[in-house]
Design a protein around this nucleic acid. Sequence first.
DNA 1: CCTTTTCTGGACTTGCAGGTCCATTTTCCG
DNA 2: CGGAAAATGGACCTGCAAGTCCAGAAAAGG
Lengths: 199, 199
Amino acid sequence: MPNAPTAKGRATRARIVEGAAEVLREQGVAFTTLDDIRGRTGTSKSQLFHYFPAGKDELLLAVARFEADRVLKDQQPHLGRLDSWESWRQWRDVVVERYERQGDRCPLGSLFLQVGRDRPGARAIVTGLMRQWQEQLARGMRALQANGLVSSALDVERTAAALLAGIQGGVTIMMSTGDSTHLRAALDTGIEHLRGTAG
Amino acid sequence: MPNAPTAKGRATRARIVEGAAEVLREQGVAFTTLDDIRGRTGTSKSQLFHYFPAGKDELLLAVARFEADRVLKDQQPHLGRLDSWESWRQWRDVVVERYERQGDRCPLGSLFLQVGRDRPGARAIVTGLMRQWQEQLARGMRALQANGLVSSALDVERTAAALLAGIQGGVTIMMSTGDSTHLRAALDTGIEHLRGTAG
DNA sequence: CCTTTTCTGGACTTGCAGGTCCATTTTCCG
DNA sequence: CGGAAAATGGACCTGCAAGTCCAGAAAAGG
């Protein structure tokens, strides 16, 4: 269902998704109505349903995709070039800075609770994001191995999975407490663990 | 506001909280109505508002407290006696088993999205839980230090924070993907990290 | 017992948010 | 141009779920 044949249509659709993302970040999904989104994006009810015929859920899913894209984009180009200790450090700083700026709102996490995880497509967004993220971490670790900075005996996949979990948890905890200590601890301890296997 | 002077009253209140917790686990907070809870607990609307005058939010908060208590209780007695590698392993198994059994529902996480983090009391529940959890992990690490199993140079607080973050993230990811790989990776890598500093 | 408080049942109200509809305007394209 | 398709505005409908109310049953307790 190609839902925006014209350029104007595509622009409006994009405006809705971006505006909705803003509102959802500010208010949280549980407290956001279609009217809020309508107001923010300067659109009418019929436009919302024109571009998202299945209603709110479809819109929320589109926003989830939009937010998921940002997550990895915001970490580039560092995440793509994790081949030295210095690049890992830079990436670490970017991640901390990004999530501290985001504050205590979790756009993605909350979206799925509202939509329902089982909904076709919902799960795929998260699993896809996690897979790509972990892949890039793993690639970075292999780059370190190739440069002789990390033991070749390291179980890269598992270590990458653990680091990713640490980041997720650090962010989760920050959402609840407003404190980034755990995120920093997870990143620093994770990198330190890599350094510990040096050789 | 002592909200249950009589024994019967206290029993009813407890029945409501426990029943609500069940329903919320099964359906998710976004899809649960007071009528669902009423049905499950065999109560009437007036009872719900008799015991939770502020309405749904107050009830959800009570459920959150109830669930938060369970989290640590379910990890005992292992979490309280982390003084040998064997005890750490047992604890690890219990955590994995507990969350795998819980499946892909996150009672606590979702509750706060609905209630709103800012609500007085909401944040305190999570921060308190995290503080206690991390404290017990840190105590376990110090016990390992005391037994000469782990380097005394280890930054216990930071390592405990990182491990806690890993667990949280592992659980979070499992909620979305249904797969406990990350949780296991976080636990195993965390413990391995401790072992790595041995001496 | 008799009074007072607590507890319970369930009908009723109400506001709101999601969703529908259709008239009108704008854009597309031959 | 001119007709078709897309885009837009906004009034309207509707169902549902939170919350109210009051009457009546059960317990407390002197």
